[in-house]
């Protein structure tokens, strides 16, 4: 146990620019520059036992025109979850795939590509999965307005219930 914890410290020593924060029991948040993230993941996997890529999340930040990518990594050995946060600019909206390091990444990268339009260099599969017949913009972006889309696409049902003739029903 201690050995693994030390190895995590060794990872942090090796990458001094990380912002590390322990946010709760078994939760560590790391802020990392985009170009350093693959190295971090490799070190975490190779040296500290963070084998399980639980998920990759994407967050749209239109104010700064950035996507935030969050890699959630779990270590079965020390029971700790690291969420590694990094940001990439809208333009060009490209990032490197971590598929070669964590095979499950392909699923999440494909999802993010489909929903946010981020292109992952080296990802073996970025075919549409859910939105196979969708022509519009990546819908999870904040700029996609669901309500406007619904109003443009669907009709609101008009009802003519009987009670509308006498809503008070004698209660007035």
């Amino acid at each position: 146990m201690n050995r693994e914890l030390e190895s995590l410290d060794a990872v942090f020593r090796e990458m001094p620019d990380l912002k590390v924060e322990h946010t709760g029991p078994r939760r560590t948040r790391i802020q990392v520059e985009a170009d350093a993230l693959p190295t971090l993941l490799e070190l975490l996997k190779g040296r500290a036992g963070y084998l399980h890529l639980s998920a990759i999340s994407c967050v749209d930040w239109p104010d700064t025109e950035e996507f935030e990518l969050v890699y959630h990594l779990w270590s079965y050995q020390v029971s700790n979850l690291i969420s590694a946060h990094t940001r990439i600019p809208y333009d060009p909206g490209r990032y490197v795939s971590v598929y070669d390091l964590h095979a499950p990444a392909v699923y999440f990268e494909r999802d993010i590509h489909e929903m946010f339009g981020v292109w992952f260099e080296g990802c073996p599969d970025q075919e549409p999965f859910i939105l196979t017949e969708w022509q519009g913009p990546p819908p999870m972006r904040k700029s996609f307005d669901t309500v406007a889309y619904v109003n443009d696409t669907f009709e609101w049902r008009e009802y003519q219930p009987e009670w509308a003739n006498d809503p008070s029903g004698g209660k007035g």
Binding site: R157, Y159, Q160, P161, E162, W163, P167, G169, K171
Partner: peptide, 10 residues
Amino acid sequence: DLNTYYILPD
């Protein structure tokens, strides 16, 4: 009749 699915409950 779908109109009966829109109710004014008392």
